[in-house]
Computed example of a mutant assay.
Amino acid sequence: MLTIGCHLSSSKGYFAMGKEAVKIDANTFQFFTRNPRGTKAKAMNPEDVNRYLDFAREHGIKQILAHAPYTLNACSADEGLRTLARDTMKDDLERMEYTPGNCYNFHPGSHVGQGAEDGIRYISDMLNQVLTPELHTTVLLETMSGKGSEVGREFEELREILDRVEQKDHMGICLDTCHAWDAGYDIAGDLDGVLNRFDRIIGLDKLKAIHLNDSQNPLGAHKDRHAKIGEGYIGFDALKRITVHPALRDLPFYLETPNDLSGYAKEIAMMREIV
C-alpha cells in the first residue's frame, strides 16, 4: 500500500493531526516541531501523545516526519545562530522520543559566503554534538534547490556531511522532488539516471522519505517554488513514475504542495488511484 500524507498543522497536537490524516485518507503526515519561522515550541502533552499512538496503531498510520523550523541554520557564519540551531535540534530530538521510531527532517542551511566546505563542517559538527546512540529517531538531510548559498544542492555535499557524522545509523536523506528538479536533477526525463547517481554517491539505503511536489520552475532554476501535482514543470506522469518506481515505492511520500486540506485529499486520492 502507498504510504502518503501531507503537511499538517501541529497547533492542536498529535491526536488532532492523526484524525486529520485519516479524514483525508492519509496514512502518514509531516508537521513542524515548533513555529517554523521562529524558535518557540509548545510544551509536550504526554496524554495527547498517548491518545495519538493508540489512534495511529488502530488506523495504520506509519512513519511520521517531523520538520525542523526554517530558522535553523547549522552552517551560519554567526556562532550564535549555530548555537541556536544546535540547541533547537537537541530539544526537538528529545521531544521526538515521545514518538520513537520516526524521522526528523531539516534543511542543511546556507553558508552565507563562507563556502560550502565550511558549511559542511559546521553542519556535521552540530550533528556530532546532538546525536547519541540512545536516540530512537532518524535525522534526515533534505535535498535542496541551490538558491543562494544553500548547502545540499548536490548529492556530493550531502555525502560529505554523512561521512563526517559519527552516528551514521541515525542519519538518512529526504529527497524533495521540487528541490531536486530545481537543482538540476532531471527526475522527469531521466529518473533512473538520477537514482543511479544517488546510489553511487550516497546509497539508496540512506533514502528514507520523499517530499512529493511539482515545481513552478524549469529544470535547474535553483529556486524553490512548489506547485500542485501535475501543475508544474515536472508534471503528473513523472511524479506518478516516482511513486511506483521499484526503488522508491515502499518509501513514505509527503505532499508539500500549495493546498488546503481538501486539496491534499484530492492529491492523495489521485496518487492512490495510480497504485
Score class of each variant (00 low, 15 high):
Leu2Gly: 06
Thr3Gly: 04
Ile4Tyr: 04
Gly5Tyr: 04
Cys6Ala: 13
His7Met: 10
Leu8Met: 10
Met17Leu: 12
Lys23Asn: 12
Lys23Pro: 01
Ala26Arg: 00
Thr28Gln: 08
Gln30Trp: 03
Arg34Cys: 15
Asn35Tyr: 09
Asn35Met: 15
Pro36Val: 03
Arg37Lys: 15
Arg37Leu: 08
Lys42Met: 13
Ala43Glu: 12
Met44Arg: 13
Met44Ala: 15
Glu47Ser: 10
Asn50Ala: 15
Leu53Trp: 02
Phe55Leu: 06
Phe55Asn: 02
Phe55Val: 04
Ala56Asn: 03
His59Ala: 10
Lys62His: 13
Lys62Val: 09
Leu65Gly: 00
Pro69Thr: 02
Ala74Gln: 01
Cys75Lys: 02
Ser76Gln: 01
Gly80Ser: 11
Leu81Trp: 07
Thr88Cys: 11
Met89Cys: 01
Glu94Phe: 06
Pro100Asp: 08
Cys103Phe: 08
Phe106Leu: 11
Phe106Asn: 03
Pro108Val: 07
Pro108Leu: 10
Gly109Phe: 06
His111Cys: 11
Gln114Met: 15
Gly115His: 09
Gly119Cys: 14
Arg121Val: 11
Tyr122Arg: 10
Ile123Asn: 09
Ser124Ile: 06
Asn128Trp: 05
Val130Asp: 09
Leu131Ser: 05
His136Ala: 13
Val139Asn: 02
Thr143Gly: 15
Ser145Gly: 04
Ser145Ala: 13
Ser145Lys: 00
Val151Met: 06
Glu154Gly: 03
Leu158Ile: 08
Leu158Ser: 04
Glu160Ser: 08
Glu160Ile: 04
Ile161His: 00
Leu162Gln: 04
Leu162Ala: 02
Gln167Met: 07
His170Pro: 02
Gly172Ile: 05
Ile173Tyr: 04
Leu175Pro: 00
Asp182Arg: 05
Asp186Met: 09
Asp190Ser: 13
Asp192Pro: 03
Val194His: 12
Val194Thr: 09
Leu195Asn: 04
Asp199Ala: 12
Asp199Val: 07
Arg200Phe: 11
Ile202Tyr: 00
Asp205Met: 01
Leu207Trp: 02
Lys208Glu: 10
Ala209Trp: 07
Ala209Gln: 05
Ile210Trp: 04
Ser215Gln: 00
Pro218Trp: 08
Leu219Ile: 03
Arg225Pro: 01
Ala227Trp: 05
Lys228Ile: 11
Gly232Ile: 07
Tyr233Ala: 14
Asp237Ile: 05
Lys240Asp: 05
Val244Gln: 13
Val244Gly: 03
Pro246Asn: 13
Pro246Leu: 10
Asp250Tyr: 12
Pro252Glu: 12
Leu255Ser: 09
Asn259Cys: 15
Leu261Phe: 12
Lys266Arg: 15
Lys266Ala: 15
Ile268Phe: 07
Ile268Lys: 01
Ala269Cys: 14
Met270Cys: 11
Met271Tyr: 01
Arg272Gly: 01
